[in-house]
Design a protein around this nucleic acid. Structure first.
Lengths: 191, 191
DNA sequence: CTCGATTGTCTAGCAATGCTAGGATCGGGT
DNA sequence: ACCCGATCCTAGCATTGCTAGACAATCGAG
């Protein structure tokens, strides 16, 4: 039985290696550079091995997205818990969100821009994604205001952050004024 | 001289045909289905003809984006001018923006999601893009509030709209609650 | 310890993609 | 009528995601 366990462990290790390598490569040279061949070469296996772990490239992107979602949730909670007072927490949360997007552009793309074959807003939404939304909700729910559904408020606030993140990264918004944008957003939206 | 003029006219016609066909195909089957071969077949020319008009696929996407930007600017202005009172105008503008994104998903993708090789927020930003932003600014500048730079306010509001549009289209947000989201956004952000 | 079977991995190849070189063909000007 | 240039197409390249089939290593049974 121990033999089989070792094999499973090795398999799991290799799967982690694939995901980590894909992420690394994407952060270094962009997702376009993440081809199955290059990825296979980096992990020092042949291409078909990838397909014994994942159904295809999409699933690899999805795996990176899930890993990123977990990290993001942790980062958001850490930032929020370091601040006190609901509004301060919201500001810290917003800054942490945008900082995460800026520091991990490839991961952010995997989560929200690319098609990782993940389901959202459904029953079968993967746990890390639901948890990342929950992390937002925890802090944002406090400042939704009377008569406003916390989830709805969180969606709107999240959409605004997502818009800022993507438009900035795509060069649609000059990056210098990020801070005043955050302040304006929190000032107006949070009650 | 007339011969040359006719040729130029025909060339311009064909270029419009290429852009229109690319857009149509993208709206019907998504941008993934817009391959140079399929596109060439639809316009009843061979592939290399495309490259005598555009440097590559990116530029074709860019052309669709510019066309879309002009349309969007017109749609936004029409919606805004049909409403009176600054806040009502903003609501109308927001609805028009999201409606445009929903009705022309491929065009919206070309404008903001895909890489069309266009420059933003620079000197050399194409006119239609600057004009679309101007259309937003005209209406949103009125409700920026005291001491808030109209352009900055417009950027934030735009980012929020963009976030709602993309997250909804990507299935990240359930589409039913779009209207209350818009109301919340206008309620809080507009002064 | 040996042998068959199963499991795992790689080589080789497919169809589709964006893009380009080279030759054929058509038309206008002299 | 002829030539020359513009215009267009056939054919092909390298790269992509993905897969079939051959090969080797490993494990369990006798």
């Amino acid at each position: 039985m121990s033999v089989q366990e070792r094999k499973e462990r090795e398999r799991a290790d290799r799967e982690r290696l694939i995901v980590a390598t894909a992420r690394e490569l994407a952060e270094q040279q962009g997702w376009d550079a993440v081809t199955t061949r290059r990825l296979a070469e980096r992990i020092e296996y042949s291409q078909p091995v990838l397909y014994s772990h994942f159904r295809g490239k999409r699933e690899i992107i999805g795996a990176v997205a899930l890993e990123g979602a977990a990290e993001m949730a942790a980062a958001l909670r850490a930032a929020a818990s370091a601040a006190d007072g609901p509004r301060t927490r919201v500001t810290a949360l917003a800054r942490a969100y945008l900082a995460f997007a800026e520091r991990n552009p490839a991961v952010y793309d995997a989560m929200f821009r690319l098609d990782g074959g993940l389901a959202f807003a459904h029953e079968d939404t993967p746990e890390p994604l639901k948890d990342a939304f929950a992390a937002l909700l925890e802090t944002l729910g406090e400042v939704a205001g009377d008569g406003v559904h916390p989830a709805l408020f969180t969606e709107v606030f999240w959409a605004a952050l997502h818009g800022l993140a993507t438009l900035t990264r795509a060069g649609r918004l000059p990056p210098e004024d990020t801070e005043p944008r955050v302040e304006l957003l929190v000032d107006r939206l949070a009650m």
